[in-house]
């Protein structure tokens, strides 16, 4: 395994009840790049993303086999009580923003407080810092005590990004983060990602081909629970090897 690989998924199989959702997945995700998981809806992209974070744990009907190594550590073997440490390494951005049912301020400090940081001055500084990073500070600095649900959808999504960054992760997992947003907010998020990849490894799920072309460094193409093809963006987009990839790129599945 080389230094450039952040996440290495080996022989991953996932069942929900009796149905197999992921079939023998082998994927390498490079460090400090934007990796896009591409594929038609219902192909298991989101499920794959969630298993990186062990979010699959909370659904008792889901069974996962195989291994997922992050920096060489198999996270599927981590004991249940230490799972929170794994999750803190990753920030999650979902399809629609799901602000926690509390104030803007508390949304950011939630993760910090959970890990035991309670000093008011420290928290204030973090809140300002991460809201600035998500380009939200100027819009909300005067109403930090307002409920997060009062923000617009685009603002909420940036709040969720700030909230995720605040726990100081190494990886950002994003599940179609722009699908509920207007074009302007979408563009803001995309630009933010390109900016953030210097310090974070970003894994993004999307079914929007154009978006993938715009920002992907590395591409994983999935179809019906299997990985069909993976490689650098130039390779996959410029010179696809598999028939199914070609068909998808032509727009046959959409």
């Amino acid at each position: 395994m080389d230094n450039q690989t952040k996440i290495h998924i080996k022989n991953l199989n996932l069942h929900i009840g009796k149905q197999q959702i992921l079939k023998d997945i082998n994927v390498q995700i490079p460090k400090n790049k934007i990796t896009v998981i591409l594929g038609p809806s219902g192909c298991g992209k989101t499920t794959l993303l969630k298993s990186l974070n062990r979010l699959t744990d909370i659904y008792p009907d889901i069974k996962v086999e195989g291994s997922i190594e992050i920096d060489g550590q198999d996270i599927l073997k981590v004991k249940k009580r230490d799972v929170t440490d794994i999750r803190k390494k990753m920030g999650l951005l979902s399809q629609r923003p799901y602000p926690l049912p509390m104030s803007i301020y508390k949304n950011i400090t939630y993760g910090l407080k959970i890990s035991g940081r309670r000093r008011k001055r420290f928290l204030n500084k973090r809140v300002e810092h991460y809201l600035k990073q998500a380009s939200l500070w100027d819009e909300v600095k005067d109403r930090l005590k307002d409920p997060a649900s009062a923000l617009s959808i685009g603002q909420q999504q940036r709040l969720c990004l700030a909230r995720g960054l605040a726990v100081d992760p190494e990886i950002i997992l994003a599940d179609e983060p722009t699908s509920a947003l207007d074009p302007v907010s979408s563009q803001a998020i995309e630009e933010k990602f390109v900016e953030l990849k210097e310090r974070y490894t970003i894994v993004m799920v999307t079914h929007v081909l154009r978006q993938a072309r715009r920002i992907a460094d590395h591409v994983v193409f999935m179809y019906l629970g299997e990985v069909v093809e993976q490689g650098s963006a130039e390779e996959v987009f410029g010179n696809p090897k598999e028939e199914r990839t070609k068909a998808y790129l032509r727009g046959a599945f959409n």
Partner: peptide, 10 residues
């Protein structure tokens, strides 16, 4: 997803 958001924050 709300549960997932909270879990992913540790």
């Amino acid at each position: 997803q709300l549960t997932e958001a909270s879990l992913s924050l540790g």
